[in-house]
């Protein structure tokens, strides 16, 4: 295991332990709903600040190990660049649940939707680029029938998300007051993300399939990690859509934020595996 990967593993494990302690305190009932929402938002902000920079830096390093015309160079660079709006989006989007930001609060919650959406576009492009490159090698990567079944499930989940838009709205605007116009803009921003989820899911599933077909190795772990991020994104949103209304912010503190941590961790680990695979000592 490389030194950066060891550091990140320890880092994530420490975060998980701290979050588990917070979850135990939350479950014991010592925090009210507003406090729970603040703690939940603070955890996401901290995860974004402490884990996502690893993803950006490692993806940039991975890109530099490829030649300028290689597909891998463009794909990893897109991920490195995309990690910036993703991290910013998490910080800006979740800060209103922790702090009172006054008039800029509506802008912050909308940015919390649109900045990660821009990352999803870049990630989708990177995955599509690499899937095409791997298929073009002619060594037999292919989808399976079960993938079509899974895609049908994803399609159903997407429809469920559209029907639960108000639940997700209340999650993403926790502790914020919005006017009618601001609510409309926020809902539109949410819809953009809902349309991106199935695309990202399809590409992540395809990449996960290709990674499995590689038969192990560091490159499979690299793209498997990135694909896992895409898959966990939908799990995260689906869990919120289904249970946030009844459970409230405790759902995030006790369960869902761990999914977010796993997703961010997978996204950061992926490029580290690629760097390990492509590094040569001359």
């Amino acid at each position: 295991m490389s030194a950066p990967r060891r550091l990140l593993t320890l880092w994530i494990a420490t975060l998980a332990v701290v979050m588990a302690i917070v979850a135990i305190v939350a479950i014991s009932g010592r925090l009210d709903r507003a406090q729970l929402a603040a703690v939940s938002g603070l955890e996401v902000v901290l995860m974004a600040v402490l884990v996502l920079p690893f993803a950006g830096v490692s993806a940039w390093r991975a890109a530099n190990l490829f030649g300028p015309t290689d597909a891998g160079s463009a794909a990893w660079r897109m991920l490195a660049i995309g990690a910036i709006p993703l991290a910013l989006g998490q910080v800006i989007g979740y800060l209103p649940s922790v702090l009172t930001l006054g008039e800029i609060e509506p802008v912050a919650v909308v940015c919390g939707q649109l900045l990660p959406a821009s990352f999803r576009v870049l990630l989708s492009w990177a995955l599509w680029r690499m899937l095409r490159a791997y298929r073009d090698t002619g060594i037999g990567f292919h989808g399976k029938t079960i993938d079509l079944v899974l895609m049908a499930v994803v399609f159903v989940i997407t429809i469920v998300l559209f029907t639960r838009v108000d639940v997700l709205f209340s999650y993403w605007t926790a502790n914020s007051e919005l006017s009618e116009t601001e609510r409309l803009v926020m809902t539109s921003a949410q819809m953009v993300n809902f349309l991106l989820y199935p695309i990202l899911l399809f590409l992540s599933l395809s990449m996960a399939r290709f990674a499995l077909q590689m038969g192990g190795g560091l490159v499979a772990r690299a793209w498997g990690g990135v694909a896992l991020y895409g898959l966990l994104q939908l799990v995260h949103v689906f869990v919120l859509a289904m249970y946030y209304k009844d459970a409230g912010p405790i759902l995030s503190v006790a369960f869902d934020n761990f999914i977010v941590l796993a997703a961010f961790g997978a996204l950061a680990m992926g490029p580290m595996f690629q760097v390990e695979a492509a590094e040569v000592r001359r």
Partner: peptide
């Protein structure tokens, strides 16, 4: 090649 690109990929690439 297997530790980097995976056993199946390596085998298919070499065979190809």
């Amino acid at each position: 090649l297997a530790p980097r690109i995976g056993r199946v990929t390596a085998s298919n690439a070499v065979t190809l």
